[in-house]
Design a protein around this nucleic acid. Structure first.
Lengths: 341, 341
DNA sequence: GGCGGCAACGTAAACGTTTTCATGGCGACA
DNA sequence: TGTCGCCATGAAAACGTTTACGTTGCCGCC
């Protein structure tokens, strides 16, 4: 019946008394509108899809948390599909979400314009996360990898280190590339005469450990090392410990991401913090805006700030003792504060 | 047209040649069947819902990973809704998933039979995770908290510790209760004359730190401490370090969960490992089985084994040196192995 | 050669909403 | 008091698929 629909949804064009009667009856009969029928006629699913890479650990959970929080606040459902290793895998997932979602949040290593054009109908709005594609059709939301790396390298140099070695990430990775660019720019600006020194890595702990071993074996050791992510920094830290290198006195060390582990290694790791919850939340809110205002062509690139977190491995901590004094006020997880901002 | 449907789905009652022609045309026109229309008539969504508490960290991501992996293998979509603090919140989420999913995976602190009966129509199959409810209507999948705690306490006692103090979890938490029961049972069995000693905690790092402070302040310190989860064990470890207590020589320490941080604190934390990916995968597969065979009344309770991981804080590590030698072969993340079993 | 049966294919109904449109009643204004 | 118009309400169409059912044509057997 038409009035039922009006009463339960808009309420326009229906008497308050009738509306009340209908609501009462609906509650009594435990009536629930059939979602599929509504989708069919409305052509809206009230659902957004999140297409994520095969992502381990804290980053993943924080991202979903941010997305979910914002989605619930807007009454949107969240359809997730993670763990795609190959591009073919991701394409299949993309296609299978067709028609089940109003919009998409996409974070994938296999992204490029060709891939998107082949698998994503132009009609479905999408926000790309941490992606290098500069298409006119999609909104892009990135972490300020460049700025964060730049700030950290600058910080190391200003703390008195003469040179900084960079442990790079996987070659094709967009984040890794941006961080390396930030490193190079800061070196050019603040230590123009120091040599650029980039050693290979792949974001895994082991590659950091190997890089660290390689560095301590040199005749001329660097005075500071900046790893493209925390896991490699941790691996490097263990290599230094195993070689008897005093961190930070002999070599300063810093990472990127501020994963929880960073606070628990000894000494605690200086790093660049990324507010992942905010990344997820912002992405969803931008997508929601695109759903509400489909007219404006959504092409835009936004960037989310990072902040540098100085603990002990960079030698500039406020408490330069070698003991690990725990202070719980400063020890809260980033997501806790991020969740309230 | 009917033949189109037959060609694209079953293929029964349609010529191979016709079927091929239809498929070709569908591919050429980039035809995608409308999901909502199909749901409407089929009364199947091919989607399962995951209702999760407001869960931080590694546990969450591993769980979703396991669920997602199994769901994709079965061609099911995954609708998630996490971050519910209150029961009312969870109830709203439960209701809003009505009709959008064929079945539910539910993990919530607010679970009890009354809650479920009020918010979950009996028609939708559900698997409850880590729940104490013993209803005849739902399938339940639990971690073997009891057995894991029992084994760890036994291990500590057999390693020569005369007594074990337990740092409890939040009062209402099902996992915490089971772990405490396991502690009590193992103490009764293997150290019947030692006093039971339970101090309060709430699963957070700070409560572990406070418990640790309280323990070192005693005239008679315990010889071993077993925390109901890893975060409290880590907090306790820092309290011991700050007090100059030698772990494990003076006091042995163990946790529960095997969160990644456990391997990175100094000394590395002994703990009980939970294969979270397997928990998610098993839960989904049980749900999928219920979807395929709705006849069998699904009431069942399954339990997933844990294993104890002896690192250095329990004093029984195979390499009793005080240095933190990193060995990458043994240092893989639990999910890596879990993902392949 | 005719008839019966079977397989392929098309027609139409059904799923449960939203939305448009028509109808009727009531109030206001002339 | 009559007419006009608006508002509440109900009837019906539409969304795009699946499926039950009917129709057609072909093949085989009598």
């Amino acid at each position: 019946m038409a009035s039922v629909s009006r009463a339960l949804n808009g309420g326009r064009g229906v008497t308050a008394e009738t509306s009340e009667r209908i609501r009462e009856a609906a509650a009594r009969l435990r009536y629930m509108p059939h979602a599929a029928a509504r989708m069919l006629i409305t052509r809206r699913t009230n659902t957004v899809g999140a297409l994520l890479p095969d992502l381990y650990g804290e980053f993943f959970s924080e991202l979903i948390r941010g997305i979910d929080l914002a989605a619930r606040a807007r009454g949107l459902h969240l359809l997730v599909s993670s763990s795609h290793d190959g591009a073919e895998d991701a394409a299949a997932a993309l296609r299978s979400m067709q028609g089940r979602v109003d919009g998409l949040l996409i974070m994938s290593a296999h992204l490029d314009t060709a891939f998107l054009h082949a698998n994503l109908p132009a009609s479905v709005p999408a926000v790309l996360l941490n992606s290098g594609v500069k298409s006119a059709s999609y909104a892009v939301l990135n972490i300020d990898n460049y700025g964060g790396a730049y700030a950290m390298v600058r910080h190391l140099l200003e703390a008195g280190r003469a040179d900084v070695t960079f442990i790079a990430g996987p070659a094709g990775n967009f984040d890794a590339q941006q961080r390396e660019l930030g490193y190079r720019a800061a070196m050019a600006k603040y230590a123009p005469h120091a040599p650029l020194d980039v050693v290979a890595g792949d974001f895994n702990e082991e590659s950091g450990y190997l890089a660290g071993q390689q560095l301590v074996a040199r005749k001329q050791r660097p005075s500071a090392v900046f790893a493209a992510n925390d896991m490699m920094a941790v691996g490097c830290l263990y290599a230094f410990k195993d070689a008897g290198v005093d961190v930070p006195r002999e070599i300063a060390l810093a990472g990127f991401d501020d994963i929880p582990i960073a606070r628990y290694v000894t000494p605690p790791l200086s790093t660049v913090r990324v507010r992942i919850v905010d990344l997820g939340r912002s992405a969803l809110e931008q997508l929601a805006a695109m759903l509400e205002e489909p007219r404006q062509d959504a092409a835009s690139i936004h960037t989310l700030d990072c902040e540098i977190v100085t603990r002990e491995t960079c030698g500039a901590a406020r408490q330069p003792t070698t003991t690990t004094g725990k202070v719980f006020d400063s020890g809260r997880r980033p997501s806790d504060t991020g969740g309230k901002s």
